[in-house]
Amino acid sequence: MDDLRIVERDVDAKETKISAKNVQVYYGDNHAIKDVNVEIADKTVTAFIGPSGCGKSTFLRCINRMNDTIDVCRVEGDIAIDGEDIYDRKVDPVQLRAKVGMVFQKPNPFPKSIYDNIAYGPRIHGLAKNKADLDNIVEQSLRRGAIWDEVKDRLHEPGTGLSGGQQQRLCIARAVATEPEVLLMDEPCSALDPIATAQVEELIDELRQNYSVVIVTHSMQQAARVSQKTAFFHLGYLVEYGETGTIFTNPEDPRTESYITGRIG
């Protein structure tokens, strides 16, 4: 485990962005998430790790109610963002998702031009007053997605023509363009090669300045590299949650230790 470079982190006490209490998720009869309590801080990268099927992605999808799109899925318990319960009947999932953006495992650019891919969110949410405004948003988003220099000369070519790593950064830029407060990332690097992964990881670290980032990852090294806080999920339970450094060097729970050292997973 030499490559676990636990860098110094500014883990100042920050205000809580997302708080989950007693969250249960069912897929039909299958109890997928069991009694999860967690508080996620603002302007922090929080990593969810755990063996596959442990429920980390499921929990992530609860935070912007993407699970609503699955018929058989049922969520119980409270998840609040800035103290507002997102499962309240009055909350519109569309409005919520504008606030809580999401990046997926596989890069999924729309079959449109690069420009339209980015402009899609601002257009539907009405963020731009005019064309110049929209151009500005697209440029800023692409810059924040760290891909501007690569695509600025071909904004009107299809987004599907980019390489995998570029596509994923495009998707991150797309998510950023709607000015979310929270950015959820579901294994964003699992389909990328090491170089593209490094670029995306660097980007994630930059994004921390403005957003609360939650990243699900398969790779412990990645969690160690990019996150300040880490949560370890196992069989639907949140086993351990704390400072990334602590989790990786001095886990409290024996299951966490087994996973970190590679005995389960």
Binding site: R97, A98, K99, G101, I124, A177, P180
Partner: peptide, 9 residues
Amino acid sequence: DGSLGIGAT
């Protein structure tokens, strides 16, 4: 998912 995830109806 990509579209729904950024808040499209």
